[in-house]
Structures are given as structure tokens and as C-alpha cells.
């Protein structure tokens, strides 16, 4: 025993290196566990406070663009109001016999930290559990999809950007109603790839891709991007489609966090199927 200890002591530089390297690798591998831990929460609270203070200063630089974007979105929403539309019905009486229920609610949050040049990009928002943000909520802005909430502390939350190797979202090419998987291959932050669309259907450059609404996270019809390049690998029966994201991930300032109000009911239903 003494010999072993003496050996370790003699090579303490190497053994300490080993220990620290293993700790780091455990932190990388057990990320979700770490994020829920006391240490993770304390770290998030500290970094969140620093980063939100800093973004309070830097956000002044983008006020002009942000105002323009808001005005544009207001105009677009205005067009959708019923008062702005003329009824061209020839029937004299319309009975609407449907009760409408709200399915999605939107919370505005500010982006206080963001990156686009890593392989795994994350976005930090200035709202957390206190403001009703929960794991697995969708995040979008007026231009299109942005990501999914992956971890929440009481005042802040981390969003897994679509620009992440773990990100898988369900998308649809609107014109032909075909479903596929949205991914990001790294590198260019402006373009992503759409997979699993069978090679027999005809796709055109410029086709729009939106969310499918089949996931419990994103509402249907949120803009994702437009098709840029279409490609079939030899021996493959599916397209690899390169598309341009509609959202500009570099200039994110304010985003909407989407809550699906009937999500619990949907997951419950899904669980029943799996149980049987």
C-alpha cells in the first residue's frame, strides 16, 4: 500500500491530470444530470446575472433593427385580423358551430447569450421557471424557428438552438406536404439540412419548409426556411435537402417561448399507447 501511495505521489502531476480529465469527461457526458444539480443551478444563477447585465448594455446597439422588425410583425398580424378582411361570402347566414380553444400561449423573452460558431450552440434567455418557462418548450421569433428549451433555473433558461448536433425537429415541405427531419451539419449557421424525404417526389428550389405540427412542441406552420440545394446520395432512397434558415441566428434579440396548453393531455395519451 505504501509503495502505491509513494508511486502516486511521485507521479502526482500525471495522476492529478487523469483525475481532472475524468471529472471533465463526466461533466460532458452527464450534462443533463449536472444541469439539474445544486452546482449547476448556482453556476447558472451567477452567469445569468453577469450576462444579463452585460446584454443590458449591448442591446442598445440593435434598437433600430429591433424596432423595424417589430413594426413589420405588427403589420403582418394586422393583416390577419378579421376586421381587415372583406367577407366575400354569397350565403346570407353562416353558423359557426365550433368552440375555439387556445392551444398555444407565447411569452416574450430576451436573448442574453447566443453563439453560432460552435458545433453545439446554446442560447440563454432572461426568463425562467418563475415566468412559467419549462423544459421542452418551443422557441421562435417573428422570422421562424429558433430552438427548444433544455434547462431552466428560477430566473434563466438555456435553449438548444437548432444549430446543434442534438437538435432534431419535424419539418414539412408545404407545397407537396412531405414530412422530414430538420438537422444542422455544423459550419454555416445560415443553412440546415432536411432528411427522410423519399426521392420519388419532386422538390423545387425555393420551396418553403415549415414545422409539421406533429411534435408536441412546435405549433404547426412556423416558418423554418427555403430549399436551396437538392441532393440524393448514391444508393440512397431519400433526399438530402439543404435549406436556408428564415431566422437569422446571429441577430437574435427577442424570442417567443411557446407553451402548448394541451401538451400534458397529448403526452398522457401517448403514454397509454406505449403502456399497452
Amino acid at each position: 500500500m505504501r509503495h502505491i501511495l509513494a508511486f502516486i505521489w511521485k507521479h502526482n502531476f500525471f495522476f492529478l491530470f487523469l483525475v481532472l480529465e475524468v471529472v471533465s469527461l463526466i461533466l460532458i457526458a452527464n450534462k443533463s444530470f449536472y444541469q439539474g444539480s445544486v452546482l449547476g443551478n448556482a453556476t447558472d444563477r451567477f452567469t445569468g446575472t453577469v450576462v444579463s447585465g452585460w446584454s443590458g448594455i449591448t442591446s442598445y446597439f440593435n434598437l433600430k433593427q429591433e424596432n423595424e422588425r417589430l413594426a413589420e410583425e405588427n403589420a403582418r398580424l394586422h393583416r390577419m385580423l378579421t376586421e381587415e378582411q372583406i367577407t366575400s361570402d354569397t350565403t346570407t347566414l353562416t353558423v359557426t358551430d365550433t368552440t375555439y380553444n387556445q392551444q398555444y400561449t407565447y411569452t416574450v423573452a430576451k436573448v442574453i447569450s447566443n453563439s453560432t460558431n460552435r458545433r453545439d450552440n446554446y442560447i440563454m434567455l432572461n426568463k425562467g421557471r418563475k415566468h412559467g418557462i419549462e423544459r421542452d418548450m418551443a422557441v421562435m421569433n417573428s422570422e421562424g424557428i429558433v430552438g427548444t428549451v433544455v434547462s431552466v433555473s428560477s430566473n434563466f433558461s438555456w435553449v438548444m438552438s437548432v444549430l446543434n448536433k442534438h437538435s432534431r425537429l419535424s419539418g414539412r415541405i408545404n407545397r407537396i406536404n412531405q414530412m422530414g427531419t430538420i438537422m444542422w451539419q455544423g459550419g454555416n449557421p445560415a443553412s440546415g439540412t432536411l432528411h427522410d424525404i423519399p426521392a420519388h417526389v419532386k422538390i423545387l428550389e425555393g420551396d418553403t419548409i415549415t414545422t409539421s405540427g406533429f411534435s408536441l412542441i412546435f405549433p404547426e406552420g412556423i416558418m423554418v426556411g427555403t430549399v436551396e440545394r437538392i441532393n440524393v446520395e448514391t444508393g440512397d432512397h431519400f433526399y438530402t435537402i439543404q435549406f436556408r434558415f428564415s431566422a437569422d441566428f446571429n441577430s437574435l434579440r427577442y424570442v417567443y417561448v411557446v407553451r402548448n396548453l394541451i401538451r400534458d393531455e397529448q403526452t398522457e395519451l401517448q403514454k397509454n399507447i406505449i403502456d399497452e
Binding site: F17, L20, E21, V23, L27, D44, V51, Y122, S151
Partner: peptide, 20 residues
């Protein structure tokens, strides 16, 4: 650096290796 970029352990592993 990790705690500011939600990349737990990544920069730590690289920095320790570099120091070694």
C-alpha cells in the same frame, strides 16, 4: 468559460490537457 457557454466540461477538458 464552460459555465458561460453551457458546454459543461468541454473547455475544462481541453484546458487541463493543454496544461498537462
Amino acid at each position: 468559460v464552460d459555465s458561460f457557454s453551457n458546454s459543461t466540461g468541454l473547455h475544462a477538458a481541453a484546458a487541463v490537457f493543454m496544461a498537462f
